[in-house]
Nucleic acid binder design. Structure first.
Lengths: 341, 341
DNA sequence: ACTCGCATCGAAAACGATTTAGCGCTATAA
DNA sequence: TTATAGCGCTAAATCGTTTTCGATGCGAGT
């Protein structure tokens, strides 16, 4: 079907190996023959076959992406789709394609690692999944180059958002605006959730805030319905918080709805903050106060880290991606809130 | 590194070819030896190498995905990320992985078709891109199995959302609620946009509505800023529309903002409808009136159509995916709108 | 006994590339 | 004059499969 290296060789009157070496920049090929080969490449529109190359060289120029969350949102995940998109762009720029690693390959079940080997991916990026799964661990412990996002493993390079720093900055901010009764609707237990929760509690302690247990409620990520129910509970508390922190921006709409239903004004009666800085929320009104996570950079850094590893270039053990507090209009000084209690 | 078919053969005391045939269900292998082989597969944890298989058989069990839009949103596209996710799921179920086809492969530029050949994908799914691009046409005209989404090509199977039907239903609905001055903020020219716009105009004519040219404004998709500016113009018209149709749900937030800024109540003063039925908008308040496009089904059907083509099974020429009118709260009877003009 | 068919299996040639070993040749050095 | 050392190239092995074409042994039919 396609034109092979053999066709090229015949066309140039050279051996196959000479052509191969000319293409791959070997030093023992004269400049003139290299020119001849290159000209023939253009003329015949030759392109090497990735499979043959992978078969021989053991390199597929393919990166595996391991990615799943409890809600099975996959590519539609509002935060990780951004990370992924930029991971993909950076990878493409370096000449790598990406393939998604799943555990159902055709009829049968396959472990993640088996899928990686089947496609002979050169490395794997792991994000947003249950890192305690045995199948996942199997990959991190394999000889494959791996990079993890938002989770550290012994000896595995990682890209991590500065969750603690973001939470501290947010807490400092709401405190500075006079808030003393701060509730936190945190995500289900995971490395990220735990980091933020710890930072929340440490900040509270540092600032001298007492946080009653009913102010600390768990909520699924990216689940506005769940968020709505939980915020409704918070708003019906005898001692209502003056400020509510949500675990992600996506849940803000649910919180807003709960507020409307409870006859509570945002931010007139209660302040509200998110986490993520999703671009979809930029047109949220009033402008959302949230902690921006640099998802594009996380994706890029992850790709760079992984590729550096694969190509035996020096690389950092772990990269902390800074976050940024976005001061919107959903958190206001507590004195501006109407005293309705 | 991995365990090959040769290892299997030695372990079983068989020839490589016998093992291969046992694995691939050939009939000239006895049941007992097949059992032996299968047992060895489990014991040695053997998995075939996809590249070797692709090299020999010409099949890679890989589907290419050609996907881009003018705003370069890629995987983060609110509508197509859903299509893609379900395309991927269906493909996985049938034993296919997917790879994204771009035109920058490493340092150099590569045409889409070359990229397809390089990875030897078995077929290509094309969505949401400039179908008039020469590089795109080159793929549709190649010998590769192709399926297009939301665009028909001569001789190429396609999956298309019933845009016309949706627009007609929407128009009938707003008309039935008494709206006579209906504006349409339509998308930039494309097969989809044109289909909807035509349906809009035909419906208007059928219903006896006159649509002044200033009620027909173009707007980029998924660009709330753009939408905001345009709706602001609409709302400042001397003869204000009683109902505004937006080209997609994502732009609704921009429209809402424009309304707030113009002191216009939605839906109190002006009704508002979207298009897509994005799940992200489910928590929009008031509940959005929109035309739901069955993105998951579109993805699934596309994958099925493509795979049926690849595997030489019978397949339909084109699939029209029905839409559904979601009657929310943003379009209300015109008598309920305050007469402020 | 001889052939025929059947059931099982094996040898070997692909697939398209990379890579190692080596071969003639020329130029330089000893 | 004879080693030595590149230079520029080729031959051939190799990567892990699939697939074609036999090959072998055995029971049955004539």
């Amino acid at each position: 079907m396609g034109v092979t290296i053999r066709d090229l060789a015949e066309h140039c009157g050279l051996s196959v190996s000479a052509v191969s070496k000319a293409l791959n920049g070997y030093s023992d090929i004269s400049e003139t023959t290299r020119q001849t080969v290159m000209a023939a490449v253009r003329e015949l529109d030759y392109h090497p076959n990735a499979h043959a190359r992978a078969l021989k060289g053991g390199r597929s120029y393919n990166l595996g992406v391991l990615f799943s969350d409890d809600s099975q949102s996959g590519l539609t995940h509002p935060f990780f789709s951004v990370v992924l998109e930029h991971f993909k762009r950076e990878a493409e720029q370096e000449g790598y394609d990406i393939t998604f690693i799943g555990h159902r390959m055709g009829n049968g079940r396959v472990t993640y690692l088996d899928h990686c080997r089947y496609r002979e991916v050169d490395g794997v990026c792991m994000a947003c999944l249950d890192f305690d799964d045995a199948e996942v661990q199997e990959v991190t412990e394999s000889e494959l180059p791996v990079v993890t996002i938002d989770r550290r493993f012994q000896g595995v390079p990682s890209v991590i958002s500065d969750n603690e720093g973001g939470m501290r900055a947010l807490m400092d901010y709401v405190y500075s605006l006079g808030h003393r009764r701060v509730a936190y609707v945190h995500g289900p237990s995971s490395a990220v959730s735990d980091a933020r929760l710890t930072a929340f509690q440490e900040s509270a302690a540092r600032l001298g805030l007492t946080v009653p247990p009913e102010y600390l409620l768990p909520c699924r990520y990216t689940d506005p319905e769940n968020a709505r129910a939980i915020v409704r509970v918070l708003l019906s508390l005898p001692q209502r918080p003056t400020c509510i922190l949500m675990c992600d921006d996506y849940n803000i709409t649910g919180a807003k709805q709960a507020a409307v239903e409870s006859g509570v004004n945002i931010p007139g009666d209660v302040s509200l903050a998110g986490f993520d800085g999703l671009s979809q929320m930029q047109s949220f009104s009033p402008r959302l106060t949230t902690v921006y996570q640099d998802a594009p950079r996380m994706g890029r850094e992850a790709a760079r880290l992984l590729i550096a590893q694969i190509e035996n270039r020096p690389f950092l053990e772990s990269i902390i991606v800074p976050v940024r507090l976005l001061r919107g209009e959903t958190v206001v000084p507590v004195s501006l809130e109407s005293k309705t209690i």
